[in-house]
């Protein structure tokens, strides 16, 4: 189900409004509290629970209709509403890449994207790289090169690799290092991740597996 133009217009508007109020909350606290009131703006009542929005979301090819709060991130909606826990939270503030997904084919941090922002978009998560019960090429390459240790950053790494290879099927080592540098790995599996991306590139072209 694709949203009609009206709907996307409306969600675009409410998104803008939402961001505006966020900006005021962060930078212009005194304005919200009102002059002289001296109230801590953080003590203002949070958005009412009832204030929810229904959004269409296509995730790994399946269409969903979700009821979300405007402040929910895509990460939260994927994990807690759809139970797709392959996408991991690492920082929830755009620093680590653990939450990386593809939004309409683009590499994005799901923690920095509101669910309402993603309305109507097509999302691919780690689960979406599977071919039935089999690992997809990027996943297989990660397994073969041992491109992870604890495996917690790995879904994000795999999604960044997938996004990179869709854009650039034959990346150089420098390109890989540049494009993947938004995905932290505290275990330090980086050298193996580079190899895995290279292997995945040749697998996608029907080369060695």
């Amino acid at each position: 189900m694709k949203p009609n133009d009206d709907e996307s217009e409306r969600s675009a508007l409410s998104r803008r409004r939402f961001f505006n109020s966020m900006a005021a909350g962060a930078g212009g606290a005194a304005l919200i509290a009102g002059p002289g009131e001296g109230r801590d703006p953080r003590l203002e009542a949070p958005p009412d629970r009832a204030e929810t929005i229904r959004i269409p979301l296509t995730v790994n090819g399946r269409q969903h209709s979700l009821t979300v709060e405007p402040r929910w991130t895509l990460l939260y909606a994927l994990r807690e509403q759809l139970g797709l826990t392959g996408t991991k939270p690492g920082c929830e503030r755009g620093e680590c890449g653990a939450c990386t997904v593809l939004i309409d084919g683009q590499v994005r941090y799901a923690c920095m994207t509101l669910a309402v922002e993603a309305a109507g978009a097509s999302i691919t998560t780690l689960e979406g790289l599977m071919r039935g019960e089999e690992l997809g090429p990027v996943q297989q390459a990660f397994a073969q090169e041992d491109a992870f240790q604890c495996g917690y950053c790995t879904p994000g790494q795999a999604m960044s690799a997938e996004g990179l290879l869709r854009k650039s099927p034959n990346p150089s080592v420098d390109e890989i290092r540049e494009e993947m540098s938004g995905n932290l790995c505290r275990c330090g599996a980086y050298p193996h991740i580079v190899k895995a991306v290279q292997r995945a590139a040749s697998m996608r072209k029907g080369g060695v597996s």
Partner: peptide
Amino acid sequence: DAYERLSG
């Protein structure tokens, strides 16, 4: 456990 860790 590569499968588990890579499939989600």
